[in-house]
């Protein structure tokens, strides 16, 4: 796959990432949560989604839902230990996470998982999706979940954070 054809905006020379980095992601969330509270952590996720992932948003703006599906297929192919199915129709893209690679590795490593860990998928995903005219809803968590991306024009009910499970070891 040539770089321009790769749905991922940032590419590496190795095909999958090093799973121990999930330890640092979890530790970063805990650090910001302890320093700035849940609102600070949600601001971090939102800023990440809007700024660091801006190139993804640009591709979604140009390519619509097919680009969303391509991105998530490529994303999870590069995450070690993931078991994910991405399906798409004219109205939505569903990311069915049967095994979340991050939660699985944190458990394997005996790490205490930040309880709100799974909320990242809503706040980062929504910040990526909104400028592209899309929105995301997340259900489940704590190791498996379903994330649905659809047009904002579909006007779904707002995300209910109670539908996102707390993570635990």
């Amino acid at each position: 796959m040539t770089p321009s054809a790769n749905p991922l905006p940032y590419t590496d020379t190795k095909p999958v990432g090093a799973a121990d980095f999930y330890f640092a992601i979890n530790a970063t969330f805990r650090f910001i949560l302890n320093k700035s509270g849940i609102e600070g952590l949600r601001r971090y996720w939102t800023d990440l989604g809007a700024r660091y992932f801006a190139p993804v948003t640009a591709r979604w703006s140009a390519g619509g839902l097919p680009a969303v599906a391509e991105y998530w297929r490529a994303f999870f192919a590069a995450e070690p230990g993931s078991d994910v199915e991405v399906s798409a129709d004219n109205a939505s893209v569903t990311v069915n996470v049967r095994v979340c690679p991050a939660i699985a590795h944190l458990r394997k490593g005996g790490r205490e998982i930040v309880p709100c860990f799974c909320q990242q998928c809503y706040f980062i995903g929504e910040a990526m999706a909104a400028p592209a005219g899309l929105t995301v809803r997340v259900e489940g968590g704590n190791g498996s979940c379903r994330q649905t991306f659809l047009s904002r024009n579909a006007a779904p009910a707002p995300q209910d954070l109670a539908c996102i499970k707390e993570a635990s070891c």
Binding site: L8, Y10, D12, V16, G17, A18, A19, D20, F21, Y22, A24, I25, L48, Y52, F75, A78, E79, P80, C100, P101, A102, Q120, C121, I124, G125
Partner: peptide, 10 residues
């Protein structure tokens, strides 16, 4: 979600 593949970036 944040991945480990592009960890160094974020």
């Amino acid at each position: 979600m944040l991945g480990c593949y592009d960890f160094c970036g974020h």
